[in-house]
């Protein structure tokens, strides 16, 4: 098996109270590949992502990054959180610059590069704003710049656009595609939104409902790139793909809500 950027080898994740969230997950994400992880709520997709980030250690199995077993935090990865993760006491420019400053880049250089990144995410004149002065979408843009400025080789995203409204989500999706296309990196994108996953990804991986969630499907999305996340949804091929994957996902969603449905 090729090494890939991220390889999960029979990864099982259990919590100290005995709850087994994910069971024996196998997943290889190649370099430059955009993979979405889709599943019903509470199926452990974020848990799996955190294992790839080194934020939690698997109970058994192994996480390999470019072929090497992962120990501790994944230093080669950038992580985009679902919740607000910006430091509220730093303005946008300082928030973006912090990753470089931590790596020892002189502050003036770091700030200059932060300004470039703010421009790239469309926030040229927002450098001196504090997070509470920014909208949800703007905060996400800052968070993206903050992650990308360090030039990580792997990008991990945990429902990053979840809290945003539908239109902002699609615009952010397009921005993400543009940034990703500039220098294709391995990207794992967790979402519960199948349409979003298909519009953005090379591959859509389906997880079963938890506990003891497993990976139950792996679909290649052969829609042409570059894509426009807004327009692609109107494409007939998009609909065909969506229908075939949804049939599988639907069963799991119903299982997850089994008690209430």
């Amino acid at each position: 098996m090729a090494a890939g950027a991220v390889a999960l080898d029979r990864v099982t994740i259990a919590y100290p109270n005995g709850y087994e969230a994910v069971t024996a997950a196998d997943l290889v994400v190649g370099e430059g590949e955009f993979v979405s992880l889709v599943g019903p709520t509470g199926c452990g997709k974020s848990t799996l992502l955190n294992a790839a980030a080194g934020l939690i250690a698997p109970a058994s199995g192994e996480v390999r990054i470019f072929g090497a077993p992962l120990q501790g935090l994944n230093r080669q990865a950038g992580y985009l959180f679902q919740q607000d993760a910006l430091m509220p006491w730093k303005n946008a420019a300082d928030n973006v610059a912090i990753g470089l400053e931590a790596a020892g880049v002189p502050r003036a250089d770091a700030l200059a590069r932060a300004q470039d990144w703010l421009t790239r995410v469309g926030l040229k004149n927002f450098g001196d704003r504090y997070p509470h002065q920014l909208s949800g979408g703007q905060k996400k843009r800052v968070a993206m710049a903050q992650m990308l400025i360090r030039d990580p080789k792997i990008l991990l995203m945990d429902e990053p656009f979840g809290p945003l409204d539908a239109q902002t989500r699609q615009i952010m999706g397009n921005l993400l595609l543009d940034l990703w296309a500039a220098d294709r990196k391995a990207l794992i994108f967790v979402t519960h939104d199948l349409e979003e996953a298909i519009a953005l990804s090379d591959r859509v991986v389906i997880m079963s409902s938890g506990p003891k969630a497993r990976i139950i499907g792996d679909h290649r999305i052969d829609l042409p790139r570059p894509r426009n996340a807004l327009d692609i949804r109107l494409d007939t091929r998009f609909h065909n793909i969506q229908q075939s994957i949804w049939a599988q996902l639907r069963a799991e969603v119903i299982k997850a809500y089994g008690d209430v449905a």
Partner: peptide, 12 residues
Amino acid sequence: VVLANARMLGLN
């Protein structure tokens, strides 16, 4: 979350 983010950004 802020703490985890800061760690992922490489802060010691």
